[in-house]
C-alpha cells in the first residue's frame, strides 16, 4: 500500500473494509460518504477484530489520469498539468494525492480553478532525493499515466461576505493553493481587499512573481506582496521575515479571513500571530505541508 504522511492527512493509504468494522481512529478525518462505505486509512489502522479488506477502486476517490505537461517555473519548482479525470470534482485550494506507477504517493495542493482551467495544475517543489518530485523531473513526461486521489482539505474560498478582507499568506509552494483561492475569489466576485503574501528564501523562489504582478494590475482590490528572507531583490520585493512585514503592512487584522499555507512551522507561527492581531479563530484556514515520512 502506498502511504505518505502517516498522520491521517494525505489519505493515500485508503482501503476499504469488506467485512468487519475498522477502528474509529482509522476512519477519523475521512469524508462521511467514504466512511459510510467502510473506507479507512490503513497506515493508522490497528484492527480490533477480524477485518476483510480491499484496495480502493477507481471512482472511490481514485482516478486514472495522464500528464499533459511539465515545465519549470523556477530552479526548484515545477508546474505539473494533468488531464482532469471525469468525475474529479474539486474546489480551488484543496489538495490531491498523486500516485505513480511505482506506487509512490505524495499529496500536493491543486493550483488551478475548476471553473477557469481545463487541466489540473500543481506547483511541485523539487526535493533533493524526493521520490515523486525526482520521478516527475527525470522520468515522467507528457503522456505518462498516473492516478489522482482526492480531493481533500477545507482550505478554499467560501465567503458569505463578499466584502470581507482576505489575507492569503504562504511560503514556498504554499503559494499554489493561495493562487487558486485568490483567482477563485476574484472569479466569484469578491469585492473586499485581497492581500496575498508570498515568502521565499531568495528572489528566484518567487516563482509566480510576474503572473501575480499582472493579476494585481488587472484587479484594483488584489494586492500582491512579495517577500524574501535574503536579498538582494528588486525594489518591489521586501527583504526580511514575512510575519513581521505582514503585520506591519496590514496593522490590525480584525475582520479578516486568513488562509495560511506552507511549511508547518510557518503555518503554526502565523496562526498564532494573525489570531493575536485580530483574526477570529473561526476565520483562520490552514494547510500545513507535512513532509513524507518513511513507513
Amino acid at each position: 500500500m502506498p502511504s505518505s504522511c502517516r498522520s491521517g492527512v494525505c489519505q493515500s493509504c485508503l482501503m476499504r473494509a469488506r467485512e468487519g468494522t475498522p477502528p474509529a481512529a482509522a476512519q477519523s478525518g475521512i469524508k462521511d460518504t467514504l466512511r459510510a462505505q467502510g473506507y479507512f486509512l490503513s497506515c493508522r489502522c490497528v484492527p480490533e477484530g477480524d477485518l476483510s479488506v480491499a484496495l480502493p477502486e477507481d471512482g472511490a476517490g481514485r482516478f486514472a489520469s495522464t500528464i499533459t505537461g511539465i515545465r519549470q517555473l523556477s530552479d526548484t519548482v515545477m508546474e505539473l498539468r494533468l488531464a482532469r479525470p471525469e468525475g474529479f470534482e474539486y474546489r480551488a485550494g484543496q489538495f490531491a494525492t498523486l500516485i505513480n506507477g511505482q506506487e509512490v504517493a505524495r499529496s500536493y495542493s491543486v493550483a488551478s480553478v475548476p471553473e477557469l482551467d481545463a487541466d489540473l495544475e500543481f506547483q511541485i517543489a523539487l526535493v533533493p532525493g524526493g521520490a515523486m518530485s525526482g520521478w516527475l523531473a527525470n522520468e515522467a513526461a507528457a503522456g505518462t499515466a498516473l492516478h489522482v486521489q482526492g480531493p481533500n482539505g477545507h482550505c478554499f474560498y467560501a465567503c458569505a461576505d463578499r466584502e470581507q478582507p482576505l489575507l492569503l499568506a504562504g511560503t514556498g509552494t504554499g503559494l499554489a493553493p493561495l493562487y487558486g483561492i485568490a483567482r477563485d475569489a476574484l472569479r466569484q466576485g469578491h469585492t473586499g481587499p485581497i492581500h496575498l503574501f508570498h515568502g521565499a528564501l531568495r528572489e528566484p523562489g518567487l516563482y509566480l512573481h510576474e503572473p501575480l504582478r499582472a493579476l494585481a494590475s488587472e484587479w484594483e482590490h488584489f494586492h500582491y506582496h512579495a517577500c524574501v528572507l535574503n536579498g538582494p531583490a528588486a525594489d518591489e520585493v521586501h527583504v526580511g521575515p514575512l510575519d513581521a512585514w505582514l503585520l506591519e503592512t496590514l496593522g490590525t487584522l480584525k475582520g479578516f479571513r486568513a488562509y495560511l499555507c506552507g511549511a508547518p512551522e510557518f503555518v503554526k507561527l502565523m496562526q498564532r500571530k494573525v489570531f493575536l492581531a485580530g483574526v477570529s479563530l473561526q476565520e483562520v484556514f490552514v494547510d500545513s505541508f507535512l513532509p513524507a515520512k518513511a513507513p
Binding site: K268, Q271, R272, F275, L276, S280, L281, Q282, V284, V286
Partner: peptide
Amino acid sequence: AVDVFYRHVLSDDRINYWFEDVDMERQA
C-alpha cells in the same frame, strides 16, 4: 467570547507557555 478570552490567555506570560505547542485548530 472565545476569541477575546483566548487572545488574553495567549498574551498572558503567566500561562501562555502552556499553550505553546497546541494545535490552534483543535484548540479553537
